[in-house]
């Protein structure tokens, strides 16, 4: 019975996330979902590129600030590394360290979101660049906002995992859950790499 099975670091399987059929299915299903999300974000990017600067008195190269974006990028990139650390500890059957590194990931992710909220607030109040202001603004907020919503969902997911499993320790039932959560988190970072490149950097170059 999955929940009862007790392991030691020596007996813990090399790939705990795919030891059960459930785990294998979750692993594959999640990668496929990420494939679909790739096309989803591509549609958002494509629309953004088509509507860049359109209908807006304020243009991309006047709007974006490199310092803020760099800070956000560093936070998210580091959070991706900390989630790798968490899975490393999962593979080594070190539950406490895994939880700790996931918690740090959540903090960094929350920091990213806080900066993003500040950024949006700044645009709306300083530049009157709101969701309804123009086609460009609608496209921008939908693309970057959808990414932000994904970050928020990821944070809620990881927090739920941390809380729910705090008294359980690691087993073959929750290992796939942690693994897919970390895959999701990496994917969000992948999308951000394209966002900061295509939206912010390309926007600032003009």
């Amino acid at each position: 019975m999955k929940l009862d099975e007790k392991f030691t670091p020596q007996t813990w399987p090399v790939s705990p996330e795919t030891q059960t059929l459930e785990g294998k299915n979750k692993f594959l299903g999640f990668w496929l979902f990420l494939g679909g999300e790739t096309v989803l974000f591509a549609s958002l990017f494509a629309t953004y590129l088509a509507l860049k600067d359109s209908g807006s008195s304020i243009k991309a190269n006047e709007l974006f600030d490199p310092v803020l974006v760099f800070a956000m990028t560093m936070l998210l990139l580091t959070s991706s590394l900390t989630s790798v650390y968490a899975i490393y500890h999962m593979k080594n059957y070190n539950f406490k360290k895994m939880q700790a590194w996931f918690f740090i990931t959540v903090l960094l992710g929350a920091g990213f979101l806080a900066l993003e909220v500040y950024e949006f607030y700044h645009y709306v109040h300083e530049y009157h660049f709101g969701f309804k202001s123009s086609a460009f603004s609608s496209a921008y907020y939908t693309l970057v906002g959808t990414h932000g919503a994904h970050v928020l969902f990821g944070l809620c997911w990881i927090i739920t995992l941390l809380l729910r499993n705090s008294k359980r320790g690691l087993n073959l039932y929750n290992a796939p859950k942690y693994y897919t959560a970390s895959l999701y988190w990496h994917f969000i970072d992948v999308v951000w790499v394209f966002i900061f490149t295509v939206v912010y950097l390309m926007g600032m170059v003009g």
Partner: peptide
Amino acid sequence: KGHELPMFFMYSGVFAAFLTILAMV
């Protein structure tokens, strides 16, 4: 190991994504 099919689907998704972006630009 074990990532062949996921990566095949990921690359297929990238292909569909590429077509979409190409069209829009």
